[in-house]
Design a protein around this nucleic acid. Structure first.
Lengths: 205, 205
DNA sequence: GATATATATTTGTATAGTTGTATAATAATT
DNA sequence: AATTATTATACAACTATACAAATATATATC
């Protein structure tokens, strides 16, 4: 059993996204620099993860061009019972943006925006550092928290790195649904908190 | 009172320099090797000092990069109803009567009642199975939830036994403060949920 | 349109430095 | 004598930086 290192957990994440069909055969993966920013690690750490995927035959790199998903994935040694599910893109989940690289505090977040309902949201997010300001740019002047779901999880190595806690430490996952004035959902924000250092307080008010 | 050891005095020195503003939040400390040279000790002794500073949240280390001074955010303004704040291990519990009762489902709870303010509450609890009815017996006809605090923890073996999960699994701890009509606290209830099986949903209203 | 040419991107390689972990040995304390 | 603190050494994992090599893309030129 291999020790859980950073590059291994990154490789696992990418392998999972490949298996889920998030990248199709022949597709180009994000550049090493982009992946490094996404996971908040050095480019070499991503390279090690990619190297392990390449060794397993899942991807192959072309110098100067990029890293590509192998057309015919090699035989899965587990047999014919192994099936992978397509990632069912639920309604309006076209645009997804990760801002891991920007956050270096006691919380991690990832947001999903309905691009069909909010045209130009991606460009606005590129320009603005704040989600609120980006939403204002595309016409959503105000939004309120419609629902917050909370659950406890264990920190993955990558989460642990960014939250400055040890892997396996308890984290608090918050999934918040924000809606606009008309009640239409405008953002689905996931936030992870270091459970040992943070307390969430809910007051009726 | 901790014994005065080498690493403790080194930690004290560094903590003093941090407090004096010699290193600002975000700054990188000298490398462990440099600190070891400065104090004339082995690198491991410095590491022990740094570890204690890290545990206290003053610094955090990034493998390969260095040791950095932590910037501690104090509050997370996520909305009017939801606030996150640091868990400062504020003790200060008054004389309490404890009653442990266990539910054979996915949650454990333990309540604290102010006996001085609610004479006879113990007897009422003995007689009644419901906390609400017991409170009604001692004159608290109605009470409302004034505040709920949530945090993630790891299950102790005992909790794991009752929640039917494995020790070390993530659990969600909820501390709810219930107040009577006049705003006086009548119950402090702690509940543990199996984080892997339970999701708490917070909705306005 | 075709073809060079320049420029920016992207992967490959090399080197050095830093923290994390493991093991063992030595000195100090009780 | 036994436990704890400190030292010593070696290696693993990750970061930082720089540069080379191949590719992609736009631009200019014919």
């Amino acid at each position: 059993m291999p020790r859980p290192t950073l590059w291994r957990s990154i490789a696992d994440t990418l392998r999972g996204e490949l298996a889920a069909g998030q990248y199709r055969p022949g597709d180009r993966l994000p550049t090493e620099a982009q992946l490094a920013a996404r996971f908040g690690v050095n480019r070499h750490t991503v390279r090690q993860a990619l190297a392990s995927l390449a060794e397993a035959g899942h991807v192959h790199a072309r110098r100067g061009a990029g890293v590509f998903v192998t057309a015919r994935p090699t035989e899965y040694p587990l047999g014919r019972r192994v099936r992978f599910h397509q990632n069912l893109a639920a309604g309006g989940q076209a645009a997804e943006r990760r801002m891991l690289s920007l956050v270096r505090r006691a919380a991690l977040y990832r947001s999903v925006f309905p691009e069909a309902r909010l045209p130009g949201i991606l460009a606005a997010l590129e320009a603005e550092a704040s989600v609120t300001r980006a939403l204002a740019r595309v016409g959503v002047a105000d939004f309120t928290r419609a629902e917050t779901r909370l659950t406890a999880k264990l920190a993955t190595p990558t989460q642990a790195l960014h939250l400055r806690i040890r892997p396996g430490a308890p984290i608090l996952r918050s999934v918040a649904l924000n809606v606009g004035p008309g009640g239409q959902p405008v953002e689905l924000g996931r936030t992870w908190f270091a459970g040992e250092r943070v307390t969430l307080t809910v007051t009726p008010d």
